[in-house]
């Protein structure tokens, strides 16, 4: 988003050279594994470099062996949508309701939401396994019920992102003002609160998507194929292709996050952007 321009950097901020050095060092740190992976995919059998493994990916003869990837990718996208729906339709309204009507429940709810972060995925699965046994029998063994579990793993991140935004906006007064002007609760939520909580909602969605695309443990132990488990399977057959696909998956996730961010910022250009704190004029 368009950041506010500071007149002067705070006293402890590094200078122009300092900040550049920091950016380069961190960039380098992130680049090392990526460059190494790219280099690995370019190796051919004889110690030279070529695009042979990349071409193999698109060879129709190999389609059967790579098909788990496409299935996994499709499943992961379904799970992303499911987790995002849980955040948008369940977590967000609950948090708004707590902020407006039941402020006393805030602490307990926060505790509940942050709980999953302190429980390792492997422990979570122990509890989820019997639940999913029942789900498998009643609803079916399709992929989408897994998004319920992912909704839980995403909860702490989504909560923090949205709560930070709720704390920054006086949503109680905004809601009361809208109500006094004749707005029903649906209108309050969609037309008044959602635009002002956009930053938080967006951040929570980005995190939800990122977490779900990278999830392996739960899917693997519950025998549901997703992108990460598929990569793992393919890796056993052909490590080159697995690394290529990992790179592509990374690029895909990056592109997806970019698309979400762009889509959401269309409103900015229309001028519906809430003010950043630095831009507010003092009364």
């Amino acid at each position: 988003m368009t950041g506010a321009v500071r007149e002067r950097p705070p006293a402890l901020a590094p200078g122009a050279v300092g900040s550049r050095v920091i950016v380069w060092m961190i960039g380098l740190l992130f680049a090392i594994p990526l460059v190494s992976m790219a280099e690995f995919t370019l190796r051919d059998g004889d110690g030279g470099h070529s695009l042979v493994h990349w071409f193999a990916l698109f060879d129709p003869a190999n389609r059967a062996s790579y098909s788990p990837i496409w299935i996994g990718l499709g499943n992961s996208l379904v799970l992303c949508i499911g987790a995002a729906a849980i955040v948008l339709l369940l977590v967000l309204p609950t948090m708004v309701l707590i902020a407006l009507r039941f402020p006393r429940l805030r602490r307990p709810f926060e505790f509940l939401c942050l709980l999953p972060i302190s429980i390792p995925a492997i422990v979570l699965v122990v509890g989820l396994a019997p639940v999913y046994l029942v789900i498998g029998r009643t609803i079916g063994t399709g992929i989408w019920p897994l998004s319920l579990a992912y909704g839980i793993t995403v909860l702490p991140y989504a909560y923090r992102a949205i709560q930070a935004n709720i704390d920054a906006v006086d949503i109680a007064t905004l809601a009361e003002a809208a109500r006094s002007l004749g707005a029903g609760w649906g209108t309050v939520l969609l037309r008044v609160l959602a635009p002002n909580l956009r930053t938080g909602i967006l951040a929570s969605l980005l995190i939800a998507v990122a977490v779900v695309l990278g999830e392996f443990t739960i899917a693997s132990l519950l025998n549901r194929p997703n992108l990460q488990t598929a990569l793992f399977v393919v890796n056993k057959q052909d490590p080159y292709v697995a690394v290529i696909l990992s790179l592509l998956a990374l690029g895909f996730a990056f592109a997806l996050l970019l698309v979400i961010d762009r889509t959401a910022s269309i409103g900015v250009r229309r001028g519906t952007r809430p003010p950043t704190s630095a831009e507010k004029v003092t009364p």
């Binding site: 906006v169 006086d170 007064t173 905004l174 003002a177 006094s180 635009p195 952007r273």
Partner: peptide, 14 residues
């Protein structure tokens, strides 16, 4: 059917 002005600034920021 009331009109209300609040103590804290209550304009919709967006």
């Amino acid at each position: 059917d009331i009109g209300m002005v609040f103590q804290s600034y209550s304009l919709f920021p967006h």
